[in-house]
């Protein structure tokens, strides 16, 4: 394997900020509040915290250990555990790569909306504006319509931003995250403060926080809580493995994992106040229940929020702040996914960083053009469902299975504890051996069964085959081929060394 330029974090704070930035994304603002409302308000928050401590934090510690103690990007770390596991590392970063191809398109939407905010271009009908003017949405997934030039321009800008953010790996990221992590937090606090001063804001907050304890007895709430934890922490994409590989040898992994996981959860929790306060206000204006105006995902950000912004004082400023927050929330997640992939490519093929960055970005950009067509939203929705529900849970399951059952878990725990102030007990072994694999396989199987019974989103079966199963099959086949390459590269390196 050729020598590659390995960079380290400039400080512990830089690593923590980068990992928090990776974990915090659009989901903290547009998914968590909705799921919370849907599954019992405050009861869901409690279920979420329990899931975080039982599965999320142990899995995060596991990924840090793989990257820092075992060493290397996801493919290399798994190859070092055993030659036959290298493909799992590749599967993780390939899933992350496919996600970035459409995540950058969502960022392009937000970038366009940032510009629209100055003149409130969405007017009095944000729904038609979003679907017809911005997306040029067609009537079906088979009808691609035309490529939306403004989205392609936005996409190019987003990819330039992503590549520049990781240009020299951890060295550049160490500087960038001081801005991209703190800016969205400052804006979030501003939006929460402003939101809470609106009339009827507390009616919205009541919807958010009032616990319906009976929900805790339903398996769906636990399924949703574990899913949200998996989604939110950026585990299962090889990102945290790559980031931890840039840490110096004596780092406290347990403490880092606690700060990062809790900060991510705290952001989602505070994000709920930003969303529900304005929904309470909007519901009051409309004279309806908060439930009637509650939305999630792109609909919340690009239709409901602009509609609400129309009624707020200093509307253009609120719009600019809101979409700038979305952009800065998303950029860290996007470049961390790319960095995880780039690190794997560099360590396997010995390629130079600059060229690898550009090559990966160019391929991802070209794939991303599909999502800028008139059928882009449909494909994005479909691919997202398959990549997150199947890719993420499958990788989470495989990771815990490998470490829990095919390696000496106790030895890994001792390695983690060697430099940690707060030592993790044997409960971690139980979590990694049983809890994480069981939780992820249950989530995976329930998703598969759900899809078999009813096609996701009502899309035709052929579209599911292409955008779902075919893409997953490509990811698995590529992972197996590239895994062999990583093993070869490690052999060459050890024979040279």
């Amino acid at each position: 394997m050729a020598q590659t330029e390995k960079a380290y974090w400039s400080s512990r704070t830089a690593f923590i900020l980068a990992s928090i930035g990776s974990a915090i994304g659009l989901g903290n603002v547009w998914r968590f509040p909705y799921i919370c409302y849907k599954y019992g308000g405050g009861a869901f928050i409690i279920a979420y915290l329990v899931s975080l401590f039982l599965a999320g934090i142990p899995l995060l510690i596991l990924e840090f250990a793989l990257g820092q103690r075992i060493g290397g990007s996801a493919p290399v770390a798994f190859a070092k555990l055993s030659k036959k596991f290298a493909w799992i590392g590749w599967l993780a970063i390939l899933v992350g790569f496919f996600i970035t191809t459409y995540y950058a398109v969502i960022m392009s939407w937000a970038a366009n909306y940032l510009v629209y905010s100055f003149k409130l271009s969405w007017g009095s009908d944000p729904k038609s504006f979003f679907f017809d003017k911005v997306l040029g949405l067609t009537d079906s997934i088979a009808n691609f319509g035309s490529i939306q030039t403004h989205l392609v321009i936005g996409l190019i800008i987003m990819w330039v931003w992503i590549v520049l953010s990781i240009w020299k790996g951890a060295k550049t990221v160490s500087k960038v995250v001081y801005f991209t992590v703190t800016i969205p937090w400052l804006i979030l606090i501003t939006l929460v403060t402003g939101g809470l001063t609106l009339p009827n804001a507390f009616e919205g907050i009541k919807y958010y926080l009032t616990p319906k304890w009976s929900m805790l007895l339903k398996p769906q709430i636990w399924q949703a809580a574990f899913t949200q934890v998996f989604f939110s922490l950026s585990v299962g994409f090889g990102v945290m493995i790559a980031y931890a590989s840039f840490l110096p040898p004596k780092s406290d992994l347990v403490n880092n994992a606690m700060i990062i996981a809790l900060s991510d959860a705290a952001t989602a929790y505070v994000g709920g106040f930003a969303v529900f306060s304005v929904l309470g206000y909007y519901a009051g204006l409309q004279g309806v229940e908060v439930a009637k105006v509650m939305k999630s995902g792109p609909e919340l950000a690009f239709i409901t929020y602009p509609e609400i912004i129309n009624h707020l004082p200093l509307a253009p400023l609120v719009g600019v702040l809101f979409f700038l927050m979305l952009l800065t929330l998303a950029i860290d997640s996007a470049f961390s996914l790319v960095e995880g992939f780039v690190a794997g490519v560099m360590e396997t093929f010995g390629t130079r960083r600059g060229r690898t960055n550009i090559f990966v970005a160019a391929v991802a950009f070209l794939i991303g053009i599909i999502y800028t067509t008139g059928a882009g939203l449909y494909w994005l929705d479909l691919v997202d469902h398959y990549m997150t529900f199947f890719g993420l849970f499958a990788v989470g399951f495989l990771e815990a299975l490998v470490v829990g059952w095919f390696t000496d878990t106790e030895k890994i725990r001792e390695m983690i504890n060697a430099h940690s102030i707060v030592k993790i007990g044997k409960w971690w072994n139980v979590a990694v051996k049983f809890l994480v694999p069981i939780a992820s396989i249950v989530l995976l199987l329930s998703s598969v069964i759900g899809i078999i019974i009813k096609p996701y989103g009502g899309y035709p079966r052929w579209a599911e085959l292409v955008g779902g199963w075919l893409l997953l099959a490509i990811a698995v086949i590529l992972a197996i081929i590239l895994g062999k390459q990583t093993v070869k590269a490690l052999k060459v390196k050890s024979s040279e060394g």
């Binding site: 405050g42 928050i45 958010y208 926080l209 616990p211 304890w213 406290d252 700060i259 102030i421």
Partner: peptide, 30 residues
């Protein structure tokens, strides 16, 4: 009390922000 939104507010705030502050204090002591 247990069915009040304030209950969730106190529990979640203490666990999340208390946990972050505690973890940072521990890290600084090292």
């Amino acid at each position: 009390m247990f069915t009040s939104p304030w209950f969730t507010f106190v529990i979640a705030s203490v666990v999340l922000f208390g946990g972050i502050i505690w973890s940072i204090i521990i890290a600084k002591r090292k």
